[in-house]
């Protein structure tokens, strides 16, 4: 079980209709690859965020499969077009079954 996992996102408060906006997301997570060994030589079990999804008003914006080579505290930045006011929802899926979410509203006009 990964500790101190905190998602954070940055979405502009407002945008013009059809404008490209930049969204930044980051989740603090050790992203243990499953390849490393501890001091006693035992393999440290894999524990990563394996999927990241962003939706806007229920519609998928991106859906990312993540692999063990991705470094600690994975950061995603992407561009999206916003046709109308609404809510971005972000979901991260952990190997241990935990699901972390965050959401942010955006106004258009």
């Amino acid at each position: 079980m990964a500790e101190n996992v905190t998602p954070r996102v940055r979405v502009p408060k407002s945008a013009k209709p059809g404008e490209d906006i930049t969204i930044k997301t980051l989740i603090s997570h050790p992203m243990e690859s499953g390849q490393r060994k501890d001091k006693e030589g035992n393999t440290i079990p894999r524990s990563i965020i394996n999927r990241f999804v962003a939706t806007f008003n229920g519609e998928t914006v991106i859906d990312v499969t993540m692999e063990p080579a991705i470094s600690t505290n994975p950061y995603f930045e992407f561009v999206a077009k916003v046709p109308e006011a609404g809510t971005f929802e972000f979901t991260w899926y952990d190997d241990d079954g935990s699901v972390y979410t965050d959401k942010q509203d955006i106004a258009v006009g």
Binding site: N4, T6, R8, R10, K24, L26, S28, N73, Y75
Partner: peptide, 12 residues
């Protein structure tokens, strides 16, 4: 600060 990974430790 959003992009500075050091700030995660500051938050902790």
């Amino acid at each position: 600060d959003f992009e500075n990974p050091g700030m995660l430790f500051v938050e902790a």
